[in-house]
Simulated scan of single mutants.
Amino acid sequence: MTINTATEKVIQSPWFSGVPSSETQRFLALTKLVQLKKGDRFIEAGETPKIFGFVTKGLFRFLYTDQEGKEYTKVFMPEHSFVSAYSAMVLNQASYFSIEALEDSEVLTISYASWLRLKESHPCWNELLIKVLEKAFIMKEAREREFLFLDAESRYQIFLERFPNLEHRLKQHMIASYLGIAPESLSRVRKKEQS
């Protein structure tokens, strides 16, 4: 993908619909196109993030890893998503989770310092940030409710609705991790769905 194609993806994204074109151009001038191979980490747990990005191509997952190396998938982020350990960046502290490329991917990155300057220069950036944070908060609240009240089958159905056409791009153990179940349990859920 060229920088021009990546630029087009930003301009066409609903996230930037309320941003004046002159401000979008300012944003793009501050970004850098970064290519990641499948398995690369955009952010590694334990590092203090200084950048965030907008996914123009590919797929990512946010994951926690425990002391024994077991992985817990927090969320999947396909094209047109922002990827960031935002609270760690704001607090200037180490991220508790990693962000892993699940496919060869491309991200337009911007440094947090540049973002802060941009945000102070025009109210449209605070409006965009509020939209992004609201969506993240709504998703977090929904995930908590699902884990408290719903069984694995219901959570699987919600996953399919929340991430249409994503299932074929993911390994079974990653979907199971996102659902909070073992891969064998996911196989049983899928078989039950097909019968």
Score class of each variant (00 low, 15 high):
Met1Asp: 03
Ile3Val: 08
Glu8Ile: 01
Glu8Gly: 04
Lys9Tyr: 03
Val10Glu: 04
Val10Asn: 02
Gln12Lys: 15
Ser13Arg: 01
Ser13Val: 01
Ser13Pro: 00
Pro14Arg: 09
Ser17Phe: 05
Ser17Gly: 04
Ser22Leu: 10
Gln25Glu: 14
Leu28Tyr: 03
Leu30Met: 13
Leu30Thr: 01
Thr31Arg: 08
Lys32Leu: 07
Leu33Tyr: 10
Leu33Asp: 10
Gln35Cys: 12
Gly39Asp: 09
Ala45Cys: 07
Ala45Lys: 15
Gly46Ala: 11
Gly46Asp: 13
Glu47Ile: 07
Glu47Gln: 14
Thr48Val: 15
Thr48Gly: 07
Ile51Leu: 09
Ile51Gly: 02
Phe52Asn: 06
Thr56Ile: 07
Leu63Arg: 07
Leu63Glu: 08
Asp66Thr: 02
Gln67Lys: 14
Glu71Thr: 02
Glu71Phe: 01
Thr73Ser: 05
Thr73Asp: 03
Lys74Leu: 13
Lys74Thr: 08
Phe76Ala: 05
Phe76Arg: 04
Phe76Gln: 04
Met77Asn: 10
Met77Phe: 07
Pro78Asp: 01
His80Tyr: 11
His80Asp: 15
Ser81Tyr: 10
Val83Gly: 01
Tyr86Phe: 13
Ala88Ile: 05
Met89Thr: 15
Met89Asn: 05
Val90Asn: 06
Leu91Gln: 15
Leu91Ala: 15
Ala94His: 04
Tyr96Phe: 12
Tyr96Ala: 13
Ser98Lys: 05
Ser98Phe: 03
Ile99Trp: 11
Glu103Asp: 09
Ser105Trp: 01
Ser105Glu: 00
Leu108Thr: 00
Thr109Arg: 09
Thr109Glu: 15
Ala113Tyr: 05
Leu116Gly: 02
Arg117Ser: 11
Pro123Tyr: 12
Pro123Ile: 11
Leu129Ala: 09
Leu129Ser: 08
Lys131Asn: 12
Leu133Thr: 03
Glu134Val: 06
Glu134Met: 07
Lys135Pro: 01
Lys135Val: 02
Ala136Thr: 02
Met139Phe: 08
Lys140Phe: 08
Lys140Pro: 00
Lys140Thr: 11
Arg145Cys: 03
Arg145His: 10
Glu146Asp: 15
Glu146Leu: 14
Phe147Arg: 15
Leu148Glu: 12
Glu153Thr: 13
Glu153Tyr: 13
Ser154Pro: 03
Ile158Asp: 10
Phe159Lys: 09
Glu161Lys: 15
Arg162Ser: 15
Glu167Tyr: 00
His168Ile: 11
His168Tyr: 10
His168Val: 12
His168Asp: 10
Arg169Tyr: 00
Leu170Arg: 09
Met174Thr: 08
Ile175Arg: 06
Ser177Asn: 12
Ser177Met: 10
Tyr178Cys: 00
Leu179Phe: 12
Ile181Trp: 10
Ala182Met: 11
Glu184Cys: 04
Leu186Gln: 02
Arg188Ser: 06
Lys192Met: 11
Ser195Pro: 04
Ser195Gly: 14
Ser195Ala: 06
